[in-house]
Design a binder for these strands. Structure first.
Lengths: 331, 331
DNA sequence: TGAAGCAATTGGAGCGCTCCAATTCACGAC
DNA sequence: GTCGTGAATTGGAGCGCTCCAATTGCTTCA
């Protein structure tokens, strides 16, 4: 930087002003500095800039599972807004385990990002609240009992209700839920399923098989079901990935979907929309959710808002071909 | 940091040593410092650390398309090795356009990362070489005419040859290629297809329809084919995503795969392996490729190697159910 | 007993930048 | 001419850390 200043015949401060394109710099000097910088191949050091200014203009994003298209699309919604406001986005992959998630958050916080978005975190609430003490945090796909942390959520109660209503409407009553274990939103979906079942007076039919939002856990859960003497007539999987895994296992076992058993997923990922799968599912406006999360975060960062904001988005049922009327008793 | 030093009754330097867990620090002091740090909620500032040490222990990774499971799996292969060597990984999403890719690289370079991995970059070679002047760079899925840049690649010549041999072996001769346009590796696949066709004396049957590695471009290409008076008996798509897009369009048009037309993809993504799709494709050991890329990069960073390393991985044909023997002339 | 040797500590300079207060400059108004 | 004013520019302190050389405290050995 000193070299550039010398080359352009100005002070280091002026170079700094030009590099940040601050106002009140004469056109002549600006051009001179830019030329000198270009000639010397000078590139500002963000580290030093951030250190000195105590601002990074960077948003950290934690993605719980990069393999899940759901999270990637949420990210799609965030990026444009960040860029438009002069922020850059840094991603720390979570690798689907709380421990690695913790490390990722730790790591990104050390970079002193201006804000943090957690997409589907598995961390304990306590840890999240702690992180939010120093840095604005927004969560997507889960909410938390703290006024410091904003959240953007799908209305799980409505979504799960849509699924159960749909299946009951088709004549099903033995509806099993494959849940998402400790994953973000899994608890809410499980609770929603149970509440909806009770609403229809199906308290005694409530049946939950454990899973973890991965394709393989869906397959495992389906295998569990198949091993039972009496299998349900419909399955409600906590997400599309699990539904896809379950579908494979069911078909391999010779069952026809939806004739023998109906299957509904959740999230309406690209996977579900594929004609070969054509999975009935619940749509969430992911891009919009990402956008809202970024919007909330920027409001916090700019200090435009201090009150907690909790967005809850209404989901929509996408009935496709994996769910159908109850026809015969399987097996 | 000074506060911690004061609290623990030692100098700032000692705190620094403890935080980096350097050798030659007495156990007593180490414990005291750690306790003080914990009590005060002290978290080292990476910015300052990196600035002072001129080292970041961070690897920047540019992912061309986060929606493509291929890239995500390459990333999976990189992470463990980086972590094991004390490096953290920062991801800059490329959003599938050269312009945003350029910005992402620019941005990550400003962070003074110790090394950069480009997964399927669309940038011009010149730009990549320029970036490599100051920072070690490894490319995945493409190679470049520079001894400064290492690369890890699939052997496209072999892979494409496998596909064409497979289809010719099934009796096909009218084999159309849906290419990847300007995407990384697209040129090599196109060239490989053409060479393989020539090898079988099918020079006159060479037929390429433009695409860009996205699902929608596969659908468009299929529509193009369907509009012709004489459609081919087999399609070789430049990747699985495009093949999936094509499959939808073909089936909607009433064609049966593989009876009426065979379809082969490339990459063997999870998508292709799904029983509902069961796409014939070419397998690349993605995780291994990611690992190799990281290994190469770390070698460069540590200065263990200065010679250029170009890994070329042998692919493998996965014949599934979308390719079959030539049966009848379609339409 | 003292010199040597090594481990454990410390002070201070400096990484590359921003920010603030101070200074210089240009120009119109009196 | 002189003063005032706002725009343009500058010097220097400091962001939070690392690194180096210097210092201290022990132990060992002649």
């Amino acid at each position: 930087m000193d070299d550039v200043a010398a080359e352009a015949g100005v002070s280091r401060s002026l170079v700094s002003l030009v590099m940040r394109n601050a106002p009140n710099v004469s056109e002549a000097r600006r051009v001179a500095v830019l030329a000198a910088a270009d000639q010397l191949g000078y590139r500002p050091n963000v580290l030093a800039r951030n250190l000195a200014s105590r601002r990074t203009f960077t948003i950290g994003v934690l993605i719980n599972d990069m393999h899940n298209a759901y999270h990637v699309e949420v990210l799609d919604g965030m990026e444009p807004l960040a860029t438009a406001n002069g922020y850059r986005v840094l991603i720390a992959p979570g690798w689907h385990s709380p421990a690695s998630e913790r490390r990722a958050v730790e790591s990104i916080l050390e970079y002193r990002v201006d804000g943090l978005i957690l997409a589907g975190p598995q961390l304990e609430s306590k840890e999240i609240v702690q992180a939010a003490e120093n840095t604005p945090v927004v969560i997507v796909g889960r909410s938390i009992r703290s006024t410091q942390v904003d959240s953007v959520n799908n209305d799980e109660a409505v979504g799960t209700r849509l699924v159960v209503d749909h299946l009951v409407g088709l004549g099903h009553s033995r509806i099993t839920h494959f849940d998402g274990g400790t994953g973000a939103g899994a608890g809410a979906r499980r609770a929603g399923y149970e509440a909806a079942m009770r609403h229809h007076g199906l308290d005694s039919e409530i049946d939950v098989v454990r899973g973890d939002f991965t394709e393989s856990s869906g397959a495992t859960a389906a295998a569990t079901i198949l091993g039972r003497p009496c299998i349900p007539t419909a399955i409600f999987a906590a997400n599309d990935l699990m539904a896809a895994g379950a579908l494979d296992t069911l078909e391999e076992a010779g069952l026809h979907v939806p004739e023998d058993i109906s299957l509904v997923g959740y999230d309406n990922t690209a996977l579900a929309a594929m004609p070969q799968l054509s999975l009935s599912t619940v749509h969430q406006p992911r891009i919009e959710m990402g956008r809202l999360a970024m919007e909330s975060l920027l409001e916090r960062i700019d200090g435009r808002r201090t009150k907690c904001r909790r967005e809850v988005i209404a989901p929509q049922l996408m009935a496709r071909t994996t769910s159908g009327p109850l026809r015969k008793q399987p097996r």
